[in-house]
């Protein structure tokens, strides 16, 4: 039988009740955010063993909070709520605003949650790439403890989040100092509302016009977002201006390896697009950073 036919739908009132429920049903339970990926996986017959859906709506995880160390985005925050949030105004965390603009259509963005976007572990998504470029961590609530894991570790592989028994994502945490970075995100897609053929995000620490640190991340290249470390290193201590870009692009031949090849694009096409996107993304970030 490949039908999706969960028997139970739980709406726990507390985090520990949620963890206990997930622990009780083990692999036969999943958290439901907006349900948009769940629906698609269910249609493909991939969730036939799920017996229980756990809905976190009652846990008040629907706020964006500006804390002392982190900007905390609750797992149940919808993508459209995040896009409208004050935390992203006045150019703060611009790469995240860019990514949300590129996620279409609105009917999906109104349902989809931040928790679902990061836990799906689908490498063509936009938000995880932008989050990785600003060093976001995923906060996990378990039966015994709360832990926090860098998003690039949390997303282990295609459809494989690092979720232990009874754990769920409660928030995504962005270190406060990242809010002042110059950042940008760009996406190349075949249509206005398609998943990315390639996407790219960068965040740059710029002091007096000089790049002090650069985090460059690509999506739709590998089975999870790829942090291009050599590319970032090639930008270090360079002036934040166009002349710094060619050296960064050169690193991509080696660093991107053999990108995914599928019905959207071949591996070599993706590599060419990635180079162009890096150019656009850096130029945009330089403009914003006053470089």
């Amino acid at each position: 039988m490949s039908e999706f036919s969960p028997k139970h739908y739980f709406r726990p009132e507390t985090a520990s009740e949620a963890s206990q429920t997930l622990a009780r049903y083990k692999d036969r339970s999943i958290v439901i955010g907006g349900g948009t990926v769940i629906y698609e996986l269910a249609q493909r017959g991939l969730l036939s063993d799920v017996e229980a859906l756990v809905d976190l709506t009652r846990l008040s995880l629907d706020q964006v909070k500006d804390g002392e160390k982190f900007l905390s985005i609750g797992a149940n925050v919808s993508l459209s709520y995040l896009q409208e949030s004050a935390a992203l105004r006045e150019g703060r965390l611009a790469c995240i605003g860019d990514a949300l603009k590129e996620i279409r259509p609105i009917q999906v963005k109104n349902l989809a949650t931040v928790g679902g976007a990061v836990s799906s572990c689908i490498p063509f998504f936009d938000l995880p790439v932008a989050l990785a470029s600003v060093g976001a961590n995923v906060e996990l609530n378990g039966p015994h403890a709360v832990r926090s894991v860098p998003i690039l570790e949390f997303q282990r592989d295609f459809l494989q989040p690092d979720l232990r028994e009874g754990e769920f994502v409660s928030a995504v945490l962005i270190p406060r100092q990242m809010a002042s970075r110059a950042s940008a995100f760009s996406k190349f897609a075949l249509t206005g509302d398609d998943w990315a053929t390639v996407n790219c995000a960068c965040s740059l620490e710029i002091a007096k016009g000089i790049i002090r640190e650069a985090r460059i991340v690509f999506g739709a290249i590998a089975s999870k977002p790829l942090l291009a470390e050599r590319c970032g290193a090639a930008l270090m201590n360079r002036r934040a201006e166009a002349a710094a870009i060619p050296k960064a692009i050169e690193t991509l031949d080696g660093e991107l390896g053999e990108p995914i090849s599928d019905h959207r694009a071949s591996s070599s096409y993706r590599k060419r697009v990635a180079k162009l996107l890096l150019q656009t993304t850096l130029e945009r970030a330089f403009e914003r950073g006053g470089g």
Binding site: Y39, L53, S80, Q107
Partner: peptide, 20 residues
């Protein structure tokens, strides 16, 4: 497309429990 609390959503992929 229908409105859920005033916002447009695809009803084909909205689980009915979410509308409680």
């Amino acid at each position: 497309t229908v409105l859920l609390d005033g916002r447009a959503v695809y009803s084909c992929m909205t689980y009915a429990m979410k509308a409680e």
